[in-house]
Design a protein around this nucleic acid. Sequence first.
DNA 1: AGGCTTTGACCTGCA
DNA 2: ATGCAGGTCAAAGCC
Length: 361
Amino acid sequence: MEDSHSHSQHSPSDNATTHVTSAQDHVTDAGGSANGARYRLMSPAKLPISRSTCISIPPGLSPTSFLESPVLLSNIKAEPSPTTGSFFTRQWMQGSGENAALSSEKFFSGGNIIDEKASSSFEFRFQTGASSTSGLSSAGLSIPVGLNRNGPVIHQDQRYSQSPAPSSLASQSVAVGLQDSSICSTTDELNQGGNSSTGIQASSSEHKDSIFSVPAERTSDDGFNWRKYGQKLVKGSEFPRSYYKCTYPNCEVKKIFERSPSGQITDIVYKGSHDHPKPQAARRHNTGALLSIQEDKLDKDLSSTGQEDKLNINNMEQTGSPMFSPLRANEDSIDGSGSQFQGINDDVEEDDPFQKRRYKF
DNA sequence: AGGCTTTGACCTGCA
DNA sequence: ATGCAGGTCAAAGCC
């Protein structure tokens, strides 16, 4: 009802409807069809048409740069963050899906614990041939962009930019997570040895079918307040898809994610961008502290950049690290700073939306 | 009392 | 033109 029917341009061409391809596709997909019509789309001009599904590292860019990105390193080691991927534990990377699930579960239940372990085994892999080859793997970079399937994928659908605000990149599509072959980030792992990475790769292929429950992000942990307005079991996905709207007055940002029975998020899609400040903990306690920071970063980044795609690609290129880096940076800067993450863990437990919602799941 | 989740039904777009 | 799938709405219930 709301603003529905303000169809704007969702040119099919823009969106790939394939879920398979990558996070982006995913994003597109989600926003694309039926839904798309209903959302306020950003002006065509803003649409980033050229976003590539997977992240490819530009020739000029060296994987090393990624390594340097604060996000990866610090994240991995320090605090586990879904966004950064530090959450992924070796278990899930190396082990079978089950293990992964377990680890993720642990995350949810006790975020703190994980971190160390996770970090140790944490590994990112690049899917693109170039990247993987280039040594991302070796470098241990983790680029969240274009990841998909196995891990939680976070997308931001720019197309839905409900916020006219220039700064709001409505159409940013950010994919975080691991995709089949996409990126795996390694941190320590890299250093440690190729084994893990190897294992990961192998597993990655396997992962395709097995859904990792990587706690990509808690629903409301991004710092914004979300209200669930629907849930549906989508055909392609094994898990039900949950639809959330930002509760901020005029904010129409939507978040769609799929969560495995265990409570882990397997796929996340953001539609639109918040052109309002985060409610911050004030509203909801610590609730969103964790993710919020990260996402916040994204938003800011996006907005500041003013470029949609930038998130995905440019970010990476420029910063040398995908959106994560900025996030990371922000995190630190954000009031909590590094500690925040830790706090996050705690918060997560308490406010963790997952937990809250656990009742049904 | 307010806000959020749940859930079935409805609507829209696409093949 | 029809059916399917995805997304959204809205009432009811819960916290």
